[in-house]
């Protein structure tokens, strides 16, 4: 479980995060949504420990991150998996080596054990035959799946995804969303996804945190987002004609 309490972060005069308090439970897909510039990425980077907040605390299973020693932080980070927006696969390695990388760094597994484990996760993300390809030879969807495989190979407790659907066609995006949801459920991981893809919100948003100008404007789930009267949320979520119609139909059906 991740608990965030009164998180503040500024860059010079710009106050990016203004006292965010929330929590993310294990075994559920938690989405952070909001417009560009709302502070989503900074918030995610604070959770990852890449940016240090000025005020407030982030706790991982009751351990406050800022109070941990260097070694404890290192241990905690080895339990984190991250799927970056651009996949961030290592160019110099092939797909299997990319997936095996966390095992090489943090375990004492033999080469054959590492190969077995990487084969297992590559199969889990539906890439059983792509081992020897270089990341540059893989499509965007494949790269995302490899990134997911690398993120989960060492059985992480926390999975962070920064816009995992960006640049993907709608069908592949749904495949990736469902894969993240299934893995979250299967491994009981605390998953936090940074997204502004409304399909993801409706598909996998078991918990949704809406940020606006660095403030937590609204918190709920894919079920409650239909019912909310919060103007900022409705303006953001139902900005397209399609979603406006969907919401209208939902309200009419409810009445």
């Amino acid at each position: 479980m991740i608990e965030v309490n009164n998180l503040h972060k500024s860059f010079g005069d710009i106050h990016v995060l203004k006292g965010i308090t929330t929590s993310f439970l294990p075994g559920q897909t938690n989405l952070i949504i909001g417009q560009s510039g709302s502070g989503k990425t900074v918030f995610l980077k604070c959770l990852l420990g890449l940016i240090e907040p000025e005020e407030g605390t982030i706790s991982f299973n009751d351990a406050i991150y800022s109070e941990l020693s260097v070694n404890e932080k290192r241990d905690l980070r080895s339990k984190m998996g991250m799927v970056f927006q651009g996949s961030a696969l290592f160019d110099s390695m092939n797909i299997q080596e990319n997936v095996m990388f966390p095992l090489r760094m943090f375990t004492k597994m033999t080469l054959s054990e590492m190969q077995d484990r990487s084969n297992e996760v590559l199969k889990r993300v539906n890439l059983p035959d792509a081992h020897k390809k270089k990341p540059s030879e893989a499509s965007g969807g494949m790269q995302k799946r490899v990134a997911i495989a690398r993120a989960i190979v060492n059985n992480p407790k926390y999975l962070f995804c920064d816009e995992p659907n960006s640049g993907l066609d709608p069908r592949t995006a749904i495949v990736i969303d469902n894969l993240i949801r299934e893995i979250t459920d299967e491994y009981n991981i605390t998953t936090v996804i940074n997204s502004h893809d409304m399909n993801s919100v409706m598909e996998i948003g078991e918990k949704i945190v809406f940020l606006k100008d660095g403030v937590k404007e609204w918190e709920g789930s894919k079920k409650t987002i239909f019912k909310t009267d919060n103007q900022a949320v409705t303006n953001f979520v139902y900005s397209s004609e399609l979603f406006k119609k969907v919401r209208q139909m939902y309200i009419e059906e409810r009445n």
């Binding site: 420990g49 905690l76 160019d91 760094m105």
Partner: peptide
């Protein structure tokens, strides 16, 4: 290039 493509961030997130 590793910085631009977030590969360095990926290393740091892993605690490396």
């Amino acid at each position: 290039t590793m910085r631009v493509t977030e590969q360095i961030d990926a290393l740091e997130v892993m605690g490396i």
